[in-house]
Design a binder for these strands. Structure first.
Lengths: 241, 241
DNA sequence: TAGTGGTCTAGACCACCTG
DNA sequence: AGGTGGTCTAGACCACTAG
């Protein structure tokens, strides 16, 4: 049972995406919408601030709220964390055919750097997982993951090849995934990585690395994604103040 | 006169940065802090949610709020928009020696793509500005900006060479800068760009492009930053739900 | 059980924009 | 002047964590 402001946000998001509210159109005022949904303005504002952060609307003091134009979208878009949950790769691209190829999966001791990221002792084991991800059968990224084995003891290979790892972890821990702290860097593909993706070494790469945590603050996953920069871009919508 | 929740956020941020609250330490509860600052819990929560977004604290349901460890910082960090205002380049790196080299500055008609981004007619003029930015006298990025001349009629070259363009615009329009909608892409440096930075063509690049708006919704600036990927990374801190 | 953050209400006043 | 979003109050109840 999601919070009311999340339900309302999703309801209005769907209204925008299905063109019930059209681009550049003014949408009803906070006072109207709060009456429509039967909540106070404070609650409704939480919904609208989230929609603004997601880049779907623009709020302008004294004028009203407006549907923003979507970005032209020739490339796949790496979500920057404005969805309902931290999105795993397979959740993000559900409209196209996504698959995974498992390259390695083994238990090992993390190096000190990984152990520090996972806030664990270097003497405890982690799953190391290397997967190649494909969109419409084209390999587009390599992802290395280190997952604390104390949080998730076993990971079936079916999950790694087909399913959503994050959904599996939410199910088997009974906790939601909450926190993602990532760093974006640019680099060139090494020969090893390029071979996995069937591209030439030296092609541009967007490297996204970060820690994923459960809602109780447990760090369980550190991952590095090596994305083909000719296939991905990262959208970044926000409002300063 | 900033809002109370912004003042409180900055006050607690300074307490963290000056080690009055130490890393991994639990900070006082919402109820204590709201009493300390003389505001209600709702107001204080706005402050704390912002601090969480900035990656300074972690909030854990039932446990409390904790100071997070800073990321290791070997590279320059491109702020992702969690500060008080959209940060121009010269505001972001005030601790190191930052300078600019003005390459071009002229009035011209925008192409249709730029005009659409700036929500203006293609028959009106824009400033086109190309600058090379240097940190400690090393050129690290090229930035192209298109600025609607209807919003800012004249831009002194002193501002482009030394000062902060955003501060100048806030001053001469009398409005705050509010909105920044950006896209991050990876690419390789072309010969032309590489020459400007005195590097080899083919080096990796982080390309950051986006529109900047005033708080009344006026789009005034479209810019593309070509960042040396060996010098910059982008931090991305946030909390899904 | 006691303390924590998460959500929500029903107001109020302010600042900004438009006619 | 009237409508809009921006901020803030003073409560309340819930869900989660710990001892």
């Amino acid at each position: 049972m999601a919070a009311r402001y999340i339900e309302i946000k999703n309801s209005i998001r769907d209204d925008i995406l299905s063109n019930r509210y059209r681009v550049d159109e003014k949408i009803p005022s906070e006072r109207e919408l709060s009456q429509l949904y039967g909540v106070t303005r404070v609650t409704l504002q939480k919904s609208m601030h989230l929609l603004e952060q997601e880049g779907l609307i623009e709020r302008i003091h004294g004028k009203g709220m407006f549907v923003t134009r979507p970005l032209a979208n020739d490339l796949y878009e790496l979500n920057n964390g404005t969805g309902d949950s931290v999105l795993g790769f397979s959740r993000e691209f559900s409209q196209v055919k996504v698959s995974s190829r498992l390259i390695r999966h083994q238990l090992l001791l993390p190096g000190p750097a990984i152990a520090r990221q996972l806030e664990m002792q270097a003497e405890r084991e982690v799953h190391f997982i290397r997967r190649v991800r494909l969109i419409d059968n084209t390999p587009v990224l390599v992802e290395d993951s280190w997952i604390n084995a104390a949080v998730v003891a076993t990971i079936p290979d079916e999950v790694l090849n087909g399913g959503s790892l994050y959904e599996y972890i939410e199910t088997c821990t009974g906790k939601k995934i909450k926190f993602y702290n990532s760093v974006i860097e640019g680099d060139l593909f090494s020969r090893e990585m390029a071979n996995l993706l069937d591209i030439a070494p030296g092609m541009p790469m967007l490297k996204v690395s970060g820690v994923t945590k459960l809602e109780d603050g447990t760090a369980f996953n550190y991952s590095i994604g090596y994305n083909r920069a000719d296939k991905f871009k990262i959208k970044n919508s926000w409002v300063g103040k």
